[in-house]
Amino acid sequence: MNPIISIKNINKTFSTGEEAVKDFSLDIMKGEILALLGPNGAGKTTLISMICGIIEPSSGSVSVNGFDVVKDYKKTRSIIGLVPQELVLESFETAMNTIQFSRGLFGKKRDHEFIKKILTQLSLWDKRNTTIMELSGGMKRRVLIAKALSHEPSILFLDEPTAGVDVELRKDMWAIIKNLKKQGVTIILTTHYIEEAEEIADRVGIINKGELLVIEEKRNLLNKMGTKTLTIELNSKIKSIPNSLSSYNLQLASKGMSITYNYKKQEEKTGITSLLVDLKKAGITLKDLDTNQTSLEEIFVDIVRK
């Protein structure tokens, strides 16, 4: 399958000399939800801005649906919707006017029924004639999404869509994004909420200092990078790990009342069976067992630190 967005060796160096994006290459497939994770200043917004045409790349190329974003900008931009990170809206305009403006700007004729459908989906229909400055932060965020969707894009960029919004609205946003995916829209979202990527993304890319460190299917990433921890609760306290168990790299916890063992789930032999046998041989009796999967957050921190 041909990618809907193909980024090839793109670089961006600002006039200040700051290298925001370095030799970045990535293919994004049609209909997927890709989450780009990265700390503040990692280059996520710069990358999106280059694809959307707000910033010119210093070198490299980006094609959208087979068209170059610089040479054929009209063709590429007309199918892209962008929800910016900042709540940038004309305060004195009504929600309806600003959304109609966006639709027109992207070359589409006015379509009252379509706009009504979007506003209803986003619970904005009742607020259509309210001026932007009278809307709450969450409602403004919804207006930005409505603006991005107003021209029926097949690619949607969401730059930190749930930054600073409450839990309820965040869950609403996730439902909207999942629904858009069902309609065939390709979604690229940047976030530093790992929970968000874990909840809705198909693939996860991790960016730091302008470089793509990892790009993986979310499940593969969790499986490949994720370490599982087996916590063994003991019947009686032990002072130290017996020498016969040194090869397992066990750690003593809970003041000698439990042992933890780290293993890779995807490996053929996890070593759990032999550990349990050796524990029995060492005369240690077990009370309970528990396992924990490393979260995407821990993987992210681990990769970024490296």
Partner: peptide, 18 residues
């Protein structure tokens, strides 16, 4: 100047307009 000042210029720059 106003779209530049409040940042809405980015929407115009990302739109298919010459």
């Amino acid at each position: 100047y106003f779209p530049k000042f409040i940042g809405t210029i980015n929407e115009i720059l990302s739109a298919p307009v010459s």
